Simulated assay, not measured.
Amino acid sequence: MSSVAAVGAFTDEQLELRKTVRALLTKHAAPDAVRAAADSADGYDAALWEMLCQQVGVAALAIPEEFGGIGASAVETHLVLEELGRTLAPTPMLGSVVLGAQAILASGNTEACERLLPDIAEGATIAALCWTGSDGSWDTATAPVTATAAGDGHSLTGASHFVLDGSYSDVLIVAAELDGEVALFEVDPAQESVSRRRLPTMDPTRTLAVVEFAGATGRLLTAAGSAALERVREIACVALSAEQVGTADQALANTVEYSKSRVQFGRPIGSFQALKHRMADLYFLVETARSASYAAVVSLVDDAPSRASDAGVAKVYCSEALQSVTADSIQLQGGIAITWEHDAQLFFKRAHGSAQLFGQPRAYLHWMESAAGLPA
């Protein structure tokens, strides 16, 4: 599959991929199914994930063919995440395929790639990246876990927080400080020295965990962990923006549909000029967020010099746009939208939870101001 030549100019294969994923999710990820999956023991629908992997191959898209994948570009993964964002379907796509698999690839460890990636591409193995500490800082220069040499391997001590899919993953990729530098390790979560617990979260459709290490044995993947995490963070921000665009687009579509059916003073409320203006503003937010997200993935695929800043722009703009769209969606749909039974609150929670992933938007703004030489 080729990458998108220009923002929005998708190939026939890419459009068919989007159509296929949307059809599958429409059938198997209805709101009731999403709620049931979120309330399950692991917090996701294993049957849906198997269908996405076996029938569509979503987990294999961005994994090179030499390691058992399809070898597509980040654009194809982008389209899948956008569709997943529409339904809020909880899957290991972001945690395992984007973070876990890309961290393994970024490590440059060929042996680990050959051993781990084929099963991740099949969907048979779920990987989780243990990165940040309790402060929620997705820094690449420090890590909350410490590694020390122990015989032929390394012993890991500490705790990683906010680990996507960490409570049920089959393999852990752990960022740990080794001799004052950040390194990446592979850790088997079945060890007695590894404990995991799922966190209660504001967004019930996103599974996060705390993973604690009490002298766990780790296999060194790379001593250049900071550089690997820098690359992973760029990929993660771009991927998250795709999901956020899909969520915002669906939240707006739900609001527009409601405005056509809700009648006040003998006419649909969507016909009122004030509401038309507000929904037009929301449409502008969604489409400009989509442009930022698509520009970022093109920059990533082309390995453009601006890829880091483009990823940062997508992270900031899409996070803020989604929060605005979902907040206004609740207001425009009135009292019913604040009830637990209504889906608007799930979109609102996803918006605010996603904004915190991989660093708060203000952190990226400070970084871009500093890079541009602007005063803090």
Rank of each mutant, 00 (worst) to 15 (best):
E111Q: 13
P118V: 03
V97G: 06
P204W: 06
E111K: 04
L105R: 05
V182G: 07
Q191W: 06
I173M: 09
A216Q: 03
S169C: 13
V171L: 12
G218T: 03
L117K: 07
S193L: 13
L117G: 05
S195K: 11
L184S: 01
V210H: 05
G215W: 08
I104A: 01
D203L: 10
P92S: 05
S134D: 15
T201E: 14
V98A: 10
L116C: 01
S226F: 07
D179M: 02
D135H: 02
L208Q: 09
D188G: 04
D152I: 09
A224W: 10
V187W: 04
L117R: 00
S169D: 11
T222N: 11
T125N: 05
V97L: 13
E212H: 08
I120D: 00
L129E: 05
A149Q: 15
H161Y: 13
V145M: 03
A128Q: 06
S226A: 15
I104L: 15
G180T: 10
S193T: 14
L220N: 08
P200W: 13
G108R: 04
E192Y: 11
A223M: 10
A103K: 06
A124W: 02
T157C: 13
R115N: 04
F213T: 08
G85C: 09
L220G: 00
R115G: 04
W131K: 08
V211N: 05
